[in-house]
């Protein structure tokens, strides 16, 4: 993971052959970039903020949350910044009224999917979903809540899994498989019935593959994975993959 990060920054600073450089415009800024980078990292490097949710530096990109969608002139479809590489001369808009409106609705859909009542959540105040909603100015959810009532798994002595707060971003799955190498988590079933589960859909403490490293808890953007014994608002996540920017 460290290697990967190093490579990224090195690539950005030195050793680019002129023919390996593309020029592009993001939100009016004329930039040059490495075609192997994504629109998201390029934007970040130039202090242009694109909201994300399923993206986490250091693990593979997923492209599922659709919060990072941006407009590229001439492309028929919106593209996820976290997975799109720049082509020469493209003009990208990350803040057009259209994409801002879509992002808002997507986050509202997420909030309508499961129970996200912040006032009783351990990550209240430190939740990426909450931050996203507030950055986007969401005060009211236009869709009726679907709120299935899912069982909380508190079997593990150190951690709690509350699927009612899960946004199915798969960050826990990827961090566990790609960094820890345990692959304890995966997303089971499909569609609206999708759920994160350990091993053969077992209580966490029975999951033999779990090493107890807690990386998934730190990677989780919401209160779906948290440490035992935290009161409302006490769960702060340490991003061990914190970016340098």
């Amino acid at each position: 993971m460290t290697d990967h990060r190093l490579q990224n920054s090195v690539r950005q600073r030195h050793s680019l052959h002129p023919e390996d450089i593309v020029t592009l415009v993001i939100d009016g800024q004329q930039l040059t970039a490495d075609p192997n980078d994504t629109l998201l990292t390029i934007a970040q490097a130039h202090n242009i903020h694109i909201p994300t949710l399923c993206f986490l530096e250091g693990i593979s990109a997923y492209g599922g949350c659709r919060v990072c969608l941006v407009e590229v002139e001439g492309y028929g479809k919106l593209v996820p910044a976290c997975l799109t590489h720049p082509a020469e001369g493209i003009i990208v808009r990350t803040q057009s009224p259209r994409v801002i409106e879509y992002r808002k609705k997507i986050v509202e859909l997420l909030l309508s999917e499961r129970n996200h009542i912040c006032s009783v959540c351990v990550t209240n105040g430190h939740c990426e979903l909450q931050q996203l909603a507030s950055t986007l100015g969401i005060t009211h959810i236009r869709y009726p809540g679907l709120f299935p009532s899912l069982a909380i798994d508190a079997s593990n002595t150190r951690f709690i899994h509350d699927p009612n707060r899960c946004v199915l971003c798969s960050r826990c799955v990827r961090v566990c498989a790609e960094i820890e190498g345990a692959h304890t988590w995966d997303i089971i079933h499909r569609g609206i019935k999708s759920r994160v589960s350990a091993d053969l859909n077992q209580p966490w403490k029975e999951a033999v593959t779990c090493t107890g490293c807690g990386k998934c808890v730190q990677a989780c953007p919401t209160g779906a994975l948290s440490e035992q014994g935290k009161a409302v608002g006490e769960m702060l996540k340490k991003r061990y993959t914190e970016s340098t920017t």
Partner: peptide
């Protein structure tokens, strides 16, 4: 809704709505 893979939010939740 029953065939959506569930990976992306608009299709997973949007079709249900």
């Amino acid at each position: 809704t029953s065939e959506s893979c569930g990976k992306c939010v608009p299709c997973r939740v949007g079709t249900m709505q």
